[in-house]
Design a protein around this nucleic acid. Sequence first.
RNA 1: GCGGGCGUGGUGGAAUUGGUAGACACGCGAGAUUUAGGUUCUCGUGCCGCAAGGCGUGGGGGUUCAAGUCCCUCCGCCCGCACCA
Length: 868
Amino acid sequence: MSSTPVRYNFRETEAKWRKVWDERQTFRARMDKARPKYYVLEMFPYPSGRIHMGHVRNYTQGDVIARYKRARGFNVLHPMGWDAFGLPAENAALEKKVHPKKWTYENIATMKKQLQSMGLSLDWSRELASCDPSYYRHQQKMFLDFWKAGLAYRKEAWVNWDPVDNTVLANEQVIEGKGWRTGAPVERRKLTQWNLKITHFADELLERLGTLDRWPEKVRLMQANWIGKSQGARVFWQLTDASGADRGKLEIFTTRPDTLYGATFAALSAEHPIVADLAENDLGLQRFVAESRKTGTAAAEIETAEKIGYKLPLLAKHPLVPGKTLPVYAANFVLMEYGTGAIFGCPGHDERDHEFATKYGLPIIPVVMPEGADPASFSVAAEPFVEDGIIINSDFLNGLSVEDAKARVIARLEEMGVGKGTTQYRLRDWLVSRQRYWGSPIPVIHCAKCGIVPVPEKDLPVELPEDVDFDKPGNPLDRHPTWKHVSCPQCGGPAQRETDTLDTFIDSSWYFDRFTSPNLATAPFDREEHDYWMPVDQYIGGVEHAILHLLYSRFWTRAMREVQMTSLDEPFDGLFTQGMVCHETYRAADGSWLLPEEVERTPSDKGGGGNVVRVSDKSPVEVGRSEKMSKSKKNVVDPDQIIHDYGADTARWFMLSDSPPERDLEWTEAGVTGAWRFQQRLFRIASEAIGELPPVGTPKPATFPEAATALRRAAHKAIAGVSADIEAFHFNKAVARLYELASTIDQVKPEDDATRWAKREALEIFVRLAGPMTPHLAEELWQTLGHKSLLADSPWPLAEDALLVDDTVTVAVQLNGKLRGTLQLPKDSPKDEAEKAALALPELARGLDGKAPKRVIVVPNRIVNVVV
RNA sequence: GCGGGCGUGGUGGAAUUGGUAGACACGCGAGAUUUAGGUUCUCGUGCCGCAAGGCGUGGGGGUUCAAGUCCCUCCGCCCGCACCA
């Protein structure tokens, strides 16, 4: 139309619409019982400094859902807050001499501004930060309530100890068995710490997974495995020393009581009380125990460490075989935290036991063999047989299946009084004490006379003192001159505050509850608001939280139910786990990592890749494979820069196109410019068309020419398709449909009023469908099309059913399963007609070469397969 | 070690219940227009082959008229493992 090119000024336009939404409080959520609610939540960010592309992806996805559900008439709650306590703030304090509070709030300010530049439909009036005493006072109160309800208790637990810094280390701070700052070999120490009784709900947490049908199957599976319910038996073994004198009983838990006859040794955890006892008079054993403690507390470390054992001066009497005794070891691969801290080793049917038995020359007896194997020749000497099979070499169990044998042997053990069938969980109670400053104080007081006393409710919150120093490692609360010294609330005598703080997973276990009434001072939430908004209808976040955060939140919800705060069972009705954002890595000749902006691609002489060189001196750069964006490898792209250069809509559009949201996304410059060009194209299509379109509200013509009907079909099919795609989180497919619709619209050059009407209809549909993804541009185009209302307040378009079905279908014709041609047939043609049409196809006749078909398979509307 | 996942053109990825593999996009090639602050438009583009045709969804095997999809087996990569959040 016009010879002057139309350009979309995204900077001005995006700012304009954000201001309008903000001023009109478009996204403010208010309880309204007359309307159905929809609670969309993305995992709140840790304020690490600046937002990264992972945030952009996460919040874009959530915003698509939030805007879509608003358009569909839901009363949407879409809040944002800050997971503001945590280790990095203390690290910053140590390294940069900034107070954790200052560092955290500065980061929040920066990141809030960044998030706001994305044009997210958030209700910022509900913003919260978990480090704010007005937030954590409620979790202190809840902690005390849980304690009173018997859900919190103290017990000894191991921590990683740095002997140089005299401080407790997080698993993350232990690198190859050494302290991250000191390099000193890490030791394990025992401390008395607070735990929450998550195991009290183990069975319910497992059972209710089955009802979470809007959760990814893999997350439910991971949680089920984590809870790890297993049926097994506790077996009591009589211990003796070499002379046969009674040395007490040993209790062993096993999930494989059916292999009891294959037991050739017993092994105790290095932390088992019996081992501790024996070690008192055994230097070698002391050394062994000390050696075992050098492994950190992480399960992966313990289980990959070389299996070593120490033979104890004990024998265990086999409970079913008179006269048979087993050697007893202390072993580093037996976990004190699981079962009874002791196992019997059946090397024939367990990988770890096999490795151990081979190493220490212990006998290996097969007691299960595959069905149909020959018992005389079946051997497990080379490797254990861990699958289901038939029991052998096991007295009264011979010939039974594994399952039947388990039941029979448990019955026998119970009869004899030497064992008991039990259910065991892998899940351990939640250890919530942290020896750190930047967390919510545990509101208890230690009194020499009264013991552990809760801080009275009127004294809550227990606030963190701000005058702390980070000159030394360790917990500044512990060495604060005055903070911990208080008088006992019960007896008034001198007492001390608990200086441990709560695990930050607690902060994130109820923030979604708090969002329902974030400004209420007297309680964590208003019951009516909570009942209205909860549960979260759609929760979105990284799969790295699949187990811990989500399980702890499910627990916390139940704990609140236990103390009558809610009647809610599950906090998250729907869950979606998004993939990571990745980028190529670049290395200079000297091996140092380079930022993407420090390298460039030189065009090659004839097409194809080209070389990658350093911008500064054109030296060659080694290109590594794409990995998760991380500061350490410098393969990061700053969202701020992208939003400044291309606009928020481009960043959002790129995040949604191409990659399925649950999979990893590869960030590429080409992809961004592609998204940018499409924004420009859309603006041009709409701007150029506007002059020829009928005004808003022009009545629908009675009839349409064929081309107009085709356009209307495309548009209405897009409504159905995009809606279904958004509901199913297939944003990349929704984007592809919008590309198609845009091309279709652009190609229609109307020459009559009905087609002009259809083009306006199609454009309006397009703009409304694109609204959740590229909200600023869509809002601008909505106005360009002549609307006075906000697109953000407009309803989702409705598809006309009649336009969704075609009257002809393309049917594939195959010869022996190989495609020979296609047919256009009326929809739902009878089978014999489809067959007749297929056999008449020249391409088929050529392949058939005069032979008569043996068989013809007809799948209506899909395929005709001729078999000769 | 245990648990979970992923693997389709040069690239990101599409593909109801097994039913035309490669939608859409990037890149690349050819052409047109001509933009000069990131151009735009048309056509082509899985591989081999002049063609007919053949081969193709990480490798190997199987079930089926028909397999990316179901089964077995092997390989590669990624994530979680309780004090990172």
